[in-house]
Design a protein around this nucleic acid. Structure first.
Length: 1139
RNA sequence: GCCGGGAUGGCGGAAUUGGUAGACGCGCACGACUCAAAAUCGUGUAUCGCAAGGUGUGAGGGUUCGAGUCCCUCUCCCGGCACCA
């Protein structure tokens, strides 16, 4: 590889030797504890500048310099400006690379990591930053991860951490589970292998509980817009409605209804429900459960079991205590039944009102797994008005059955009315969909279920539900095999299979609609099922076309003409009108009949006119064509679309609010009847070629009409009113959304954000501190036994089963249950490293604390972080996770602020000299150690700051010549010492004070590049003046300190400065030096630069004008000046009269 | 497709937020020093033109005395999300 070193090698330093001074000062600073930050200093405000702590990969690269050394300028400047600045550093030291290195080279990951930390610490020290190493944090330190574990347990106790059989991204090569964020284009972001889906029991963190707050608290944050937008997008909240579509199945079921406490089968509601179900052809069995006033589990379950046989056509319904009985029945069944419906059910005894006698005669433990395996589909119906069963009880039941709670509307609380239609409705199977467009419900002409939808899964377990079970099973299987990448690649061609033998009912129209399974619907979003509205959704339209499903337009866009004579007149009344607009094709040519209106020259339309009573759109269209143009033989081809246009009718002198049908006709020949005198005097027929029509027409709706015609479809439905929607016709979209949601569903928010899977089947991470006991279940490790230390292991290969290497360590795994003392097993998964980094910034505030992760009063010295600087790649992962983590800690009262970071900036990458991302394979990697050795740390720091603006995530190529240029500048600074004299050089004061002002301002705004350029301008001025006063020089050296800390310190001491320059305060500029006595004013004529003139700064406008007038007198000769614009201190503009 | 950001000399980038476009640095050219080269110093460097004078901030239109900056339409580039209902 050719080294870029030639440029650096050829550089010879003359005025200072960086190798001597940098080492010297670094050691002195360290010895004198110049950068140790006290928790607080009387009279000073605290300022917390945070940079993302590095992973100890082994070597520092230029990116680290960019991340740490450039913000160091801000840290130092802020400190010099009188604040107590915390600028800490540490290592995010758990993670996969150590483990991979261990496996590859047969090393201990801890040794590998510690060695890297030691080496990188030395490298970081060479930067000359003001990091306070006394607060260093290492995530692998047991004193640190003790608190990671402790916090995890607090999350667990709050129900924020839970285990769930989760479909996870599985990397077959790394043998580990990957977060969604770690899957890039269907491949593992570490090794590039194809990721497959696999079901595994995983620890999840309920970040979704915080989705709303993460979104809403983002708004007031003073963060760059792009970061806020990216997080918003990632959370992906959409607001809409859930709507239930009942299914019609040919299948007849046997309903077994178990009544509740103090009830009986002959209550009106059961007789009524029985009748309804029998009407549908189902069989209903209503056993009388013994001693309803003092029931026992044994008697009830026994009676229920004896009442009938239970098979795959059985639907078991349990009301109240009957629901408890039903669960017990299911625990005893050998063959699964079709369905379980619990109505007002519960599994614990904490009733809202009062205790009940059966609390002692029923057992309150349930085998959820057994119950779930005994039934193919489950509905948990709960009444929020229930007087006895609380929402929390419903939730417990729902958790046990792993089925969401269905909220029902009761006639009497607890579903005890004489009739309970909701109960019967829920006895029929239904499909729940999520939609953001409930207003288009009347246009829903089919349903689509995702291949993984529970109803599909359940239906496939039977052989008699679907007529095409095999076909559906095959499709579901194929879809499951596809990775997300493949599904995406197949996007163009929508596939799916109709569920034969099943219909859904559109709850709005009452019509039967078909049900499909298709992989364009994804299981994990919304309810995993959609109502498809092909008229207003591209995807549904594509699918509908393939499967020949009808399309019903239910929203028509509204066009209001806004310019020209027919513009809608706000204050005039309007008349409704039904009209037709005719797209008429020529009998042979691909030309279309357009009209130019003679009276209103600017208006060009299609043939159009009102539909009269007794006419339909086609008849009206034919009539209008004949009347307006005379053509007799037009053939109706198809209806194109509907739309609404609002305009002012210039003849009728009123606003018209017209509902238009756009209809396509073709002329068959040129036969014509005579057109009345009146018509022909008003209009002229213009045949227009296909691609010119859109330009020719002047009407507001032209694009919509023409695109609907040519492309077959226009989905325009955002701003419009409803049609074909019964009593909702004419409503706006917003109105209809609200009304239809009320009538047919309920409002619902959905998020793209999913729960955070934190368990990793890996060795090199924080052990999850829980113990699994057969008797007590999952039990947290007692806090006084923390930390759960990561044991040494013999080999680091994950077990082939996807378990962590820790599973192979018997002494680690086999423990006694902390609750019952029995034999138990330790959890062997470790935590995602994003957990480690979700709270490290808190630890910096109290890094040595052994009794808490950070004392609250110590946190309060610094939190929230004033400025967090880091890479753009962390926008949606680390930044979102740590915001969430902090909010959860906040809710537990463990931190004082809901948001951890007051400000955030993202920086970009340093690219290779070729403008490409640095990579070993491209051979364009810049080794910072080499450059530091040749040119010095000060040069590297300053060059990185000078490349371009730091914030905004922009990336810059490394320019070897540019680096030398910066060193050249530092050489000149060092050389300028020779110019120092006792006497002040007054000519420098203007530039010096301007620099104090600008450099300070620019640093605060992260505009280091322009700050440095001002420094260069100042130096140029000094060289021109060939002298600088001693005090002026001291000011300059002070300003140099944040940028080039070593050279500044050296120059400071050479000049006899006391102590360290880094303990000095930033100079204060004096306004008086910034006032110039004369200013140069630009002179323009008609806005063009024509000269300039020097005038006294305090000259009044007329003086400036006359001075300017003299300069450009020749140009003004013989011209009439109609206006003079004078901008004081800037310019004079003479405006001449146009010729 | 959706969201966000951007487009200025040979290059990285400035431009007081509507007021002299190209600061500063790199590169390049010429000159000084040197036997020579490097380093250093000096001068120049948007572009067309000998000049006077034109023309120029992705393209086209608009607002304005005046537009890199504001508005509309379009093109391209970068980042994020993506069959999200």
């Amino acid at each position: 590889m050719k080294r870029h070193g030639t440029v650096y090698e050829s550089f010879a330093y003359m005025n200072y030797d960086h190798t001597k001074i940098e080492k010297k000062w670094q050691e002195l600073w360290s010895r004198n504890k110049v950068y140790t930050t006290p928790d607080s200093v009387p009279g000073k405000d605290n300022f917390y500048l945070l940079v993302e702590f590095p992973y100890p990969s082994g070597n520092l690269h230029v990116g680290h310099w960019y991340s740490f050394a450039v913000p160091d300028i801000l840290a130092r400047f802020t400190r010099m400006s009188g604040k107590n600045v915390l600028y800490p550093i540490g290592f995010d030291a758990f993670g996969l690379p150590a483990e991979n290195a261990a496996i590859k080279n047969n090393l201990n990951p801890r040794d590998w990591t510690e060695k890297n930390i030691a080496f990188m610490t030395k490298q970081i020290e060479s930067m000359g930053t003001m990091f306070d190493w006394s607060r260093e944090v290492k995530t692998i330190d047991p004193a640190y991860y003790k608190w990671t574990q402790w916090q995890f347990l607090q999350f667990y106790k709050k129900g924020l951490a839970y285990q769930k059989e989760t479909s996870v991204n599985w990397c077959p090569k790394d043998k580990t589970v990957l977060a969604n964020e770690q899957v890039i284009d269907g491949k593992c972001d570490r090794c590039g292998s194809d990721v497959v889906q696999r079901q595994m029991l995983q620890w999840n963190i309920k970040i979704t509980d915080y989705a709303d707050r993460l979104l809403e608290d983002l708004e007031p944050l003073d963060w760059p817009r792009e970061i806020k937008e990216a997080q918003k997008n990632w959370i992906g909240r959409s607001e809409g409605a859930e709507i239930d579509f009942p299914l019609n199945l040919p299948q007849k079921y046997k309903f077994v209804i178990l009544h509740g406490f103090k009830s009986a089968p002959d209550r009106p509601r059961w007789l009524w429900a029985k009748a309804r179900l029998e009407e549908m052809g189902h069989e209903v069995i209503l056993p009388t459960l013994p001693n309803p006033d003092s029931p026992t589990e044994k008697e009830w379950v026994g009676t229920a079991l004896a009442a009938t046989t239970y098979d795959e056509n059985t639907v078991l319904v349990g009301h109240s205590l009957g629901a408890v009985t039903a669960l017990k029945v299911l625990e005893k069944l050998e063959r699964p039944i079709a369905r379980l419906v619990t109505v007002g059910g519960f599994i614990s005894k904490n009733f809202k009102d009062n205790p009940r006698p059966f609390e002692k005669t029923f057992s309150w433990t349930f085998d959820g797994e057994k119950i779930r395996s005994s039934v193919r589909s489950i509905t948990v119906l709960h009444d929020p008005r229930d007087h006895a069963v609380s929402d929390a009880q419903a939730k417990e039941l729902s958790d046990l059955l792993q089925t969401p709670v269905t909220v029902g509307t009761s006639n009497e609380p607890h579903f005890t009315g004489d009739t309970e239609p909701d109960v019967v409705m829920w006895l029929r199977p239904t499909i729940r969909v999520f939609t953001t467009r409930p207003d288009t419900l009347f246009g829903a002409t089919y349903l689509v279920l995702s291949p993984e939808h529970p109803w599909v899964t359940a239906a496939l377990r039977h052989t008699n539900v679907l007529k095409n079970t095999d076909e559906v099973a095959d499709y579901v299987k194929q879809a499951g095999k596809k990775t997300e990448l493949e599904r995406l690649a197949d996007q163009k061609e929508k596939t799916g299979v109709r569920l034969e033998g099943v219909d859904a009912v559109n709850p709005a129209t009452g019509e039967k609609i078909p049900v499909y399974v298709a992989d364009y619907v994804i299981a994990t979003y919304g309810t995993g099922a959609i109502m498809a509205v092909p008229a207003h959704d591209k995807r549904d339209s594509d699918f509908a076309r393939t499967f020949n499903i009808p399309t019903v337009q239910v929203v028509e866009p509204v066009f209001r003409r806004s310019d020209g004579g027919d513009a809608w007149r706000e204050n005039e009344s309007s008349k409704p009108r039904t009209a037709v607009m005719c797209i008429v094709k020529h009998w042979t040519n691909d030309e279309y009949l357009c009209i130019r209106w003679k009276d209103f020259a600017q208006i060009r339309t299609f043939v159009s006119g009102g539909i009269e009573s007794g006419e339909d759109a086609v008849a009206a269209g034919l009539r209008e064509i004949r009347e307006e143009t005379g053509f007799e033989h037009a053939k109706f081809v198809r209806h194109v679309a509907s739309g609404r246009t609002q305009f002012y009718h210039q003849v009728k002198k009123t606003n018209i609010d017209a509902h238009f049908e756009y209809v396509y006709f073709e002329l068959t020949d040129d036969a014509k009847v005579a057109v009345t005198e009146e018509e022909s005097s008003h209009l002229e027929v213009v045949w227009t070629k296909r691609d010119e029509v859109q330009n020719f027409l002047t009407i507001a709706e032209k694009d919509y009409v023409w695109e609907s015609f040519t492309k077959g479809q226009s989905f325009n439905a955002e701003n419009g009113t409803l049609i074909h929607s019964g009593s909702y016709d004419g409503m706006t979209v917003a109105e209809a959304k609200q009304k239809m949601t009320e009538a047919f569903g309920r409002t619902k928010k959905t998020y793209k954000l999913r729960d955070w899977i934190v368990s990793r089947q890996r060795y090199w991470g924080v052990p999850i501190p829980v113990i699994h006991c057969k008797t007590c279940g999952t039990t947290p490790v007692p806090e006084n036994e923390l930390p759960v230390l990561l044991p040494d292991v013999d080999d680091y290969l994950p077990s082939g089963e996807g378990k962590s290497p820790l599973a192979k360590v018997g002494s680690f795994v086999n423990v006694k249950c902390p609750a019952c003392g029995g034999d138990a097993e330790r959890e062997t998964d470790t935590l995602d490293t994003f957990v480690d980094s979700s709270w490290y910034f808190l630890r910096y505030t109290d890094a040595q604390n052994a009794s808490a992760f950070a004392a609250k009063d110590k946190q309060d010295n610094w939190m929230p972080v004033d400025m967090y600087s880091g890479g753009a790649e962390h926008t949606t992962m680390h930044l979102l996770y740590s915001r969430f983590w902090h909010k959860a800690l906040y809710d537990m009262g463990l931190v004082s602020e809901p948001e951890p970071y007051a400000h955030r900036v993202n920086h970009g990458l340093v690219l290779g000299p070729d403008g490409q991302k640095m990579s070993k394979s491209k051979g364009n990697v810049i080794d910072p150690d080499e450059i530091v050795e040749r040119l010095g740390a000060d040069t590297v720091r300053m060059y990185l700051a000078f490349m371009g603006p730091y914030t905004g995530g922009a990336s810059y190529p490394w320019n070897p010549n540019g680096v030398v240029g910066v060193r050249r500048f530092l050489e000149r600074v060092a050389k300028a010492q020779e110019l120092v004299q006792d006497a002040e050089v007054p000519a420098l004061n203007f530039e010096l004070h301007k620099s104090i002002k600008k450099i300070g301002g620019d640093i605060s705004a992260f505009k280091f590049n322009t700050a440095i350029s001002q420094f260069m301008i100042l130096l140029n001025t000094i060289e021109k003046e060939k002298g600088i006063g001693k005090a002026q020089w001291a000011t300059l050296v002070t300003m140099l300190a944040p940028f080039a800390p070593h050279l500044a310190e050296e120059l400071w001491s050479l000049q006899g400065g006391s102590n360290s320059v880094h303990l000095k305060t930033w100079p204060i500029y004096d306004e008086k030096y910034l006032v110039e006595s004369t200013v140069t004013v630009a002179i323009q004529v008609n806005g063009k630069m024509r000269g300039e003139v020097n005038v006294p700064a305090d000259a009044d406008k007329s003086a400036v004008e006359s001075a300017a007038r003299e300069v450009v007198a020749a140009r003004l000769e013989g011209q009439e000046v109609i206006r003079v614009v004078v901008v004081p201190g800037r310019l004079v503009n003479f405006v001449l009269k146009a010729e």
